[in-house]
Structures are given as C-alpha cells and as structure tokens.
C-alpha cells in the first residue's frame, strides 16, 4: 500500500479493485482487514473534518434566515467522499458474502468440508466464518421443513439428472460407506455403478468423479 498519495477515497478504490480481481480470477482473496480498518479510520477523519463546517453552516443559516446560503462546497465534497467510502465498503462485503454463499452451494452445503480446508479458512475473517455457520443453520432449518425424503434442495439445478444410477470413479479414498442399499468399500481408482441419491454429496465434495 503506497503511502504517497492521494485524494479522498483512494483506499476504497483499492478495495473495490480487489473485488474486481476476485471476480476476474474467480478466487476468494484474503479478507483485507488492514485496508478495511484504514478506510474506517478515513471515515472518522472525514467526519471530524466535516463537523466544524457543519457548525459553521448552521451558524450562518441562523444569522440571516431570509436569504438562506447553500452549504459550503467543501462540505459537499466531504460528504460525497464519506458516502462513496461507505458504498465501497458495503460493496466489498456484499461481494464477499455472495462469493461465500456460492462456495457453500457448490459443495452442496457441506460446511465442515468448506471450513476444514486450511487454505480457504485462512482467507476468511472470523466474522465471515460465523456468517457461514449461521447461513448454514438457516438453510438446515428450512430444509427440515421439507422432510427427509421429498426434495433435496442441495442438488444442482444446472444439469438435471436423467438417470437414477450413475457410473463413478473413486478419486479420493473414503473407506467403507453405508448406503441405503448396502455397504460399499470405496477405494481409489475403482469404478462403481451406484444409485445417484446415495453418493451425490460425495461427487460434489470431490471424493468421486462422474464418468461418461
């Protein structure tokens, strides 16, 4: 972060750029705590700078009420900067939460799978991890209303399933797994013809690979 700068709101531009980069490269970047903190500090500084101007304007308005003066231009600039910073902060966080939700749905709602990945975990701020947990709880609550058997809301909607059974190849060893139709021992490299509903989540989490 360069210190030699700059005008109001440069920092928030950096923040928004980061969101852009995240979208462009399709990765979740590390939560930029220090930048967010400095923007919040800038907000406070801006507000401190605006406070005397506000008082001045109020005093001027009181002095002669007949021909009301417009607020001083400096105040307008400060306010614009404040609002813009706020918008950028909101945009950054909205973008991140949206990304987190996307990640959540791509792994089929398997939150432990997502959080146990050290690489992903290190990029989350603690608050984001809490957010994911609460989101997961809400989804689970909603899902409980639908009952156990009727509908799997976690299933993908992009590729509708046209077959009950599926041919899979084991990519990551996951040992003996009990399914409704019996026990299967998944060993790396083996192929199985199994009922889709039983192992859907294993495909999503990358243990199995769908063939053909």
């Amino acid at each position: 972060m360069s210190v030699e700068t700059r005008q109001y709101g440069d920092l928030s531009t950096q923040l928004v750029l980061e969101s852009r980069r995240s979208t462009a490269t399709d990765t979740l970047l590390k939560y930029n705590d220090s930048l967010v903190r400095s923007i919040i500090r800038e907000q406070r500084d801006l507000e401190r700078a605006a406070a005397p101007l506000l008082l001045q304007a109020a005093a001027a308005a009181e002095d002669d009420e007949d021909n009301a003066q417009p607020p001083p231009p400096a105040l307008m600039i400060l306010q614009t900067a404040i609002l813009r910073n706020k918008r950028c902060l909101l945009a950054y966080h909205h973008h991140r939460t949206a990304r987190l939700r996307d990640m959540y749905w791509t792994v089929g709602g398997a939150l432990p799978h997502l959080l146990s990945d050290a690489d992903t975990r290190s990029r989350l701020s603690p608050h984001e991890a809490d957010y994911l947990r609460q989101y997961h709880d809400s989804v689970m609550e909603y899902r409980a209303d639908l009952g156990t058997s009727e509908l799997d809301i976690m299933a993908g909607i992009e590729k509708p399933v046209n077959d009950l059974n599926v041919l899979v190849k084991v990519k990551k060893e996951c040992g003996v797994i009990e399914t409704e139709l019996g026990t299967i021992d998944f060993r790396k490299g083996q192929r199985f013809m199994v009922r889709r509903a039983d192992i859907e989540h294993l495909i999503v989490q990358g243990y199995l690979e769908e063939l053909g």
């Binding site: 709602g109 156990t148 040992g175 509903a197 989540h201």
Partner: peptide, 18 residues
C-alpha cells in the same frame, strides 16, 4: 432404522461408516 439414520445424515451431506 438403519436406512432412516443414513437418510438423515445424507441430508447433512454426511456419510456413515459401519
């Protein structure tokens, strides 16, 4: 009963070993 247990855990994207 086994089937039900498996089903419930499946809902949470979990699998059970024996």
């Amino acid at each position: 009963r086994d089937r039900l247990i498996i089903k419930v855990f499946l809902k949470f994207s979990n699998s059970l070993g024996p």
